[in-house]
C-alpha cells in the first residue's frame, strides 16, 4: 500500500490506521465513507467511481501535506476506491494520527472536505431508471429552473 492511493480492490481500513500510528500519537481517527442507498428519496442501485489516477494520488498527497503543516505532529494516509461499488462498500478511508484527539478529529474532517474540492474523482449514481455523473453541471441549470 501507499499512504495516498487510488485503488480498485476493497479497502482494508486497518492498513491505513496502522500506517499512521506512531509512538508519539495518542489518537488515531479512522473515517470510512460508504456507498449510501438512499439520497434525497432516490434509491441508488450501485455507484461507479472514476479517477484521473496520477493527479488524484498527487492531490491526496497534497492534502496530507496541508494537514501535516496545519496541525503539528499529525500523520495522514488516504485511499479512495474506484470502479463499481455496491451499497455499504467503503469508497474512501482517511486515517489521521496526532498527539491528541481533538486535532485528529478536526484534521480528518478537513481531509474529506478537501477531497470533495480538489481531487479528480467522480461518481456516477446508477438508479433503477437511469444514471448520472454527479458533479456534472450540464443539467443543473435546467433542473434549478424546474
Amino acid at each position: 500500500m501507499k499512504a495516498f492511493e487510488v485503488v480498485t480492490e476493497p479497502i482494508i481500513p486497518q492498513l491505513y490506521a496502522d500506517y499512521v500510528l506512531r509512538p508519539e500519537a495518542g489518537a488515531v481517527t479512522l473515517f470510512t465513507g460508504h456507498v449510501r442507498e438512499w439520497t434525497k428519496g432516490v434509491r441508488t442501485l450501485y455507484l461507479a467511481y472514476e479517477a484521473y489516477v496520477p493527479m488524484a494520488e498527487k492531490k491526496l498527497a497534497e492534502i496530507g501535506r496541508e494537514i501535516e503543516d496545519k496541525w503539528e505532529g499529525t500523520s495522514v494516509a488516504i485511499a479512495h476506491r474506484i470502479g463499481e461499488l455496491q451499497i455499504s462498500d467503503i469508497a474512501v478511508v482517511i486515517a489521521v494520527s496526532s498527539p491528541h484527539r481533538k486535532t485528529a478529529y478536526e484534521a480528518n474532517e478537513y481531509a474529506i472536505e478537501r477531497i470533495k474540492e480538489i481531487v479528480p474523482i467522480w461518481k456516477k449514481e446508477i438508479w433503477e431508471d437511469g444514471e448520472e455523473w454527479i458533479g456534472d453541471q450540464k443539467k443543473k441549470p435546467k433542473e434549478e429552473i424546474v
Binding site: G33, I115, P120, I121, G135
Partner: peptide, 28 residues
C-alpha cells in the same frame, strides 16, 4: 489541468503537455 496541476487561463501549453478537462469533482 496541465500536467496534473490546475491551470490558470493565462498559462501557456507546450507541445508534449498532458491536459485534462476536470468536471466538478464528486469523490468521497
Amino acid at each position: 489541468a496541465v500536467n496534473e496541476e490546475y491551470a490558470l487561463p493565462s498559462d501557456v501549453i507546450e507541445s508534449g503537455d498532458v491536459v485534462a478537462f476536470i468536471p466538478p469533482v464528486s469523490g468521497g
